[in-house]
Design a protein around this nucleic acid. Structure first.
Length: 140
DNA sequence: GCCAACGTTGGC
DNA sequence: GCCAACGTTGGC
């Protein structure tokens, strides 16, 4: 059973468009143990939502894990985890934080419960609901 | 730009 | 090992 994830990025630092331009991005710089555990649990080809924090406040697309379980190249001690990701597709419509908060089917989502967690897990049910709110994946 | 919430650190 | 202080994150 694959698991689902959500990764937050501040778009003025690293946006969806930056990831698309790069074709493959390394998700590093995470310095939070819970987020690190999530990163370390990610498996090849699992999917994650890409969320814009601080600005935008919305889920813009879906990425796939292209390389699992690497050590963070920005960490000189090598004790933090990272993964590589590739963009899969944008959502037809971005799903805003307000929509997620307002949806009665998404009450326990880690994104809301642990607002400051930069890498959160999404349950399969929540994943389905959010995809539906976003009108599915955009074509092309 | 402000403030609340959370995680981490350090003194005891 | 506890708890207060501090720093950082992120929504507003």
């Amino acid at each position: 059973m694959p698991r689902y994830w959500l990764m937050k990025s501040e778009p003025f630092k690293y946006s969806w468009d930056d990831l698309v331009a790069e074709k493959e991005g390394t998700w590093d710089g995470v310095r939070n143990y819970r987020a690190r555990n999530n990163l370390a649990a990610m498996k090849l080809n699992e999917e994650a939502f890409f969320y814009h924090s601080r600005e935008g406040l919305e889920i813009v697309g879906v990425v796939t894990i292209s390389v699992e379980g690497i050590t963070d190249p920005t960490d000189p001690e090598g004790k933090w985890a990272a993964v590589k990701i590739k963009p899969k597709a944008k959502l037809t419509q971005p799903v805003t934080l307000q929509q997620i908060k307002a949806d009665p089917r998404l009450p326990e989502c880690e994104l809301i419960r642990l607002g400051r967690l930069s890498v959160a897990e999404i349950t399969p049910d929540e994943w389905k609901v959010i995809l539906e709110l976003g009108g599915g994946l955009a074509k092309g």
